[in-house]
């Protein structure tokens, strides 16, 4: 049996890579993709914990998977809005590079 920490390691790794991508991808959609990674990492962690008996109470036995479901839902909503935003920006500024989106520059 795989210790929980291994699974968590995978989750953490995924999170880290996703964070890295979110911070450093030039393409806006690339950033969105990286964010999907992060969300997946979180969901994975949830499911992992759930599979290993946390939470233990009967009522919350499916909390982990439920959470993962919700995460997927949220991810979808996020992707929708994000994409819409990218398209809107693209239409205006003719760019999809995050670096060039600095209209809100103070």
């Amino acid at each position: 049996m795989i210790p929980l920490s291994h699974l968590l390691t995978v989750s953490i790794g995924l999170f880290a890579i996703g964070l890295f991508g979110a911070l450093s991808r030039r393409n806006a959609i690339g950033i969105l993709m990286a964010i999907e990674l992060i969300l997946n990492a979180a969901a994975l962690a949830f499911v992992a914990f759930n599979a290993y008996g946390i939470p233990a109470a009967d009522r919350d036995a499916a909390l982990g998977q439920t959470a993962a479901l919700f995460i997927i839902g949220i991810a979808a909503a996020g992707a929708i809005v994000g994409l819409a935003l990218v398209l809107a920006v693209y239409r205006h500024q003719r760019t999809i590079f995050a670096d060039d989106m600095h209209l809100l520059k103070g």
Partner: peptide, 16 residues
């Protein structure tokens, strides 16, 4: 002000 680059990724970087 220099923090306010307008580029989201910078904000995110700092936050992270």
């Amino acid at each position: 002000r220099r923090l306010q680059t307008g580029v989201v990724q910078h904000y995110l970087l700092l936050a992270a």
